[in-house]
Design a protein around this nucleic acid. Structure first.
Length: 291
DNA sequence: CCTTAATCCTGGAAGC
DNA sequence: TGCTTCCAGGATTAAG
């Protein structure tokens, strides 16, 4: 479920603590969760930033990159159930808690300059393991080999950028918006929310969207994402930021998860259909095929 | 070009 | 209560 606002909330919740911190040790408890770049196969420890200092956190679509001073990069994708948690190293009771399982990678970090600071850990957990961590020898390799496959970032999508993405395909617009190579960052929640806001039927062919609809949709995507970001993202069940805080946007969703309930705009019952193997909720009146 | 289905995986919920 | 079944979802892959 983590989509763009959740990943961006996570990134922001990590920035202050992580930038400038020194990675003392990285422990991998499940090897298949980490995809080490072929050029780094014999230096797995440094590939995981061991001995490195963290200098930046970036995001593109639903992916987050942790950049080291060495120029080495970790790219984290949360998939369905991934979490990155920051914990004080003194929190000994954590080991027996509910979140104790599925901790696949653990980093031990310290802040230099202030000796005596206890340090902290960063944990990647992912019960369902749809997510993972990809390592790259440098930033440009990440761009060339991984992020080049992504379309423009949804948070700042322009009307022009959106029409460029949609005009080349006659697939259902919902399917196109879920395709990360066309536009990066949207998942099932925010696609349904944006289409509702722009009053577009989810099965409309992407290339038959009118210029007015395209403008409305680009605006709706930005608004829906910014609104969620403002409320710390949407927590349906698993999502937490690095401090374990839940997002507060779930109660503000207009259509996602509200099939059978009444439309916030016209009071008609919202209906569920399947589009691209995904449950899709929309208002049959507000999002009719015409207009 | 397109769609559909299967696959990965776990845990919560629903059904019997 | 306790078992089985279903479903959720992001991304990739194969098949039609």
């Amino acid at each position: 479920m983590p989509e763009l606002p959740e990943v961006e909330t996570l990134r922001r919740s990590l920035e202050d603590a992580l930038i400038g911190a020194q990675v003392v040790r990285a422990t991998v408890r499940r090897r298949d969760v980490v995809r080490v770049h072929p050029s780094q196969s014999r230096t797995r420890r440094s590939a995981l930033l061991e001995g490195d200092q963290i200098v930046a956190l970036e995001r593109r679509g639903k992916q987050m990159a942790i950049l080291g001073r060495s120029n080495r990069v970790l790219c984290i994708h949360l998939g369905m159930s991934g979490q990155v948690l920051r914990e004080p190293v003194t929190a000994d009771s954590k080991a027996t808690g509910v979140a104790a399982a599925h901790r696949h990678v653990i980093w031990h970090l310290e802040r230099t300059g202030s000796s005596g600071t206890p340090g902290f850990t960063l944990v990647f957990r992912d019960p369902r393991r749809f997510g993972g961590i990809w390592t790259f020898p440098d930033r440009s390799t990440l761009t060339d080999e991984r992020w080049s496959a992504l379309g423009p970032d949804a948070l700042k999508i322009s009307s022009r950028g959106l029409s460029g993405a949609l005009s080349g395909t006659q697939r259902a617009i919902k399917a196109a918006l879920l395709d990360q190579s066309l536009i990066a960052g949207l998942g099932n929640i925010y696609v349904d929310e944006a289409l509702f806001r722009a009053r577009i039927h989810p099965e409309s062919p992407a290339n038959r969207i009118t210029p007015a609809q395209n403008r409305a949709l680009a605006q709706a995507i930005r608004t829906v994402l910014h609104k969620s970001l403002h409320h710390g993202g949407t927590t349906l069940r698993d999502y937490r930021d690095a401090d374990g805080t839940e997002g507060r946007n779930a109660s503000r969703l207009s259509v996602y998860g509200r099939g059978g309930q009444s439309c916030v705009r016209c009071k008609t019952d919202l209906i569920n259909i399947m589009v691209s193997q995904r449950t899709t909720t929309f208002c049959p009146i507000c999002q009719s095929v015409d207009t």
